[in-house]
């Protein structure tokens, strides 16, 4: 078990210190050269784009998932059916999500342009322009992620004791007040967990970005995941891929540690 996961990862990270090609055997120790190269290259652009993608695909699905969970937790008609139907986007394979949104965002015949036309938006090639491509990718990933968040929060909502709400209502607390004073604090644990997991997953998400844009146009949707892949399997340059991967993992761990510290502090208060 350790062998099957830890060994490959460590070997991959070790290549950071070698000049090594995917197709030519043999390697040469180069110390920190690769890491310096990567840091002097487009590392900060990659970091920025990865963060935009990760934050966008964590916050947007969370907002949609939370809104739906709250709505479906009331006694409106059809809530059960809706809960089931809403899982479809989460169930379909990642490449299907990509195909579907590639078609929706298609510049010539896409339905997105047709829907936005009445609002006065000019037809756009959403996935082919650096300004819009990242948002298009984020929306596609959001569509895939929100159902899982909805399910988790719905499960959390059902554990909130009804007595708390009844008592607060007796004391004259309104819906909004009860939401912030009861629902949110009661769900704190699960909200924290969902956000953390989404952040980690999205930080290394590959499939949807790669199929929708391949990191383009002009590298504007390139993230650490797609860039490591491109460097290793299109550029055959394992040394630089390993170096980028090493920095990527260190960054992720640092961000997770900061997050955990931060949420523990919140707990103490």
């Amino acid at each position: 078990m350790t062998a099957i996961v830890a060994y490959p990862l460590l070997t991959a990270l070790v290549t950071a210190f070698f000049k090594q090609s995917l197709v030519v055997p043999g390697r040469k120790f180069v110390g920190f050269d690769n890491i310096v190269d990567v840091l002097q290259g487009n590392f900060f652009q990659l970091f920025q784009q990865t963060m935009i993608f990760t934050l966008g695909t964590t916050i947007l699905p969370f907002a949609i998932g939370f809104a739906l969970a709250l709505a479906l937790n009331t006694r409106i008609r059809g809530a059960n059916l809706m809960r089931g139907l809403m899982l479809i986007p989460w169930l379909v394979p990642g490449v299907v999500v990509s195909f579907l949104w590639m078609w929706i965002f298609n510049g010539n015949y896409g339905v997105m342009n047709a829907l936005l036309a009445p609002l006065g938006v000019e037809p756009q090639a959403w996935l082919a322009q650096p300004g819009t491509a990242m948002w298009a990718v984020i929306i596609a990933k959001t569509w895939q992620s929100f159902p899982w968040i909805m399910v988790m929060l719905l499960a959390g909502l059902q554990t909130v004791p009804r007595e708390l709400h009844e008592a607060a209502e007796m004391d004259g607390a309104g819906t909004v007040r009860r939401f912030f004073a009861i629902t949110v604090p009661q769900l704190k644990g699960i909200i924290g967990l969902v956000l953390l997991l989404e952040f980690i997953w999205n930080f290394q998400h590959f499939d949807i970005i790669y199929v929708l844009t391949g990191g383009g146009p002009a590298g504007s949707t390139q993230t650490f995941a797609t860039s490591v892949y491109e460097t290793a399997f299109r550029g055959y340059d394992l040394g630089h891929a390993g170096a980028l991967g090493l920095l990527w993992l260190i960054l992720l761990m640092a961000l997770v540690v900061v997050y955990v510290r931060f949420s523990e502090k919140g707990e103490e208060r």
């Binding site: 937790n73 809706m82 479809i88 709400h165």
Partner: peptide, 30 residues
């Protein structure tokens, strides 16, 4: 175990609005 009561008209409207908007986002692509 309803956390929010749907009895109040405000809550009901908000619930329906979010189901229609978010549900549309979820299901129209399908």
């Amino acid at each position: 175990a309803p956390a929010l009561r749907a009895d109040r008209p405000g809550v009901r409207v908000a619930a329906w609005a979010s189901v229609i908007v978010c549900g549309g986002f979820g299901l129209l692509p399908v």
